[in-house]
Amino acid sequence: MALSIAYFAWVRERMGMADEVVELPAEVTDLTALLAWLAARDDRGALAFAEPQRIRAAIDGVMMGPGAPLIGAREVALFPPVTGG
């Protein structure tokens, strides 16, 4: 499954890119598995996703919890807890 991923704030800096399109292995079916897969993929992923509990996510424009399924997802945004205001 092809999935667009966009990164923000220090997640973007640690990944060294703002977005990418990945071909997900069949076993990566939810957000928890996606973070683990990215962390295991390379050094940048390991740095960005060493503490998955610090990562927030949105799937196709909707904020989602850690175990949210990726079935049918087109774009995932991964980012730290927000700090606006």
């Binding site: 704030a9 807890p81 927000v82 700090t83 606006g84």
Partner: peptide, 10 residues
């Protein structure tokens, strides 16, 4: 706004 909206301060 401080907890729900996608904004990050550097």
């Amino acid at each position: 706004l401080k907890t729900d909206v996608m904004l990050w301060k550097r």
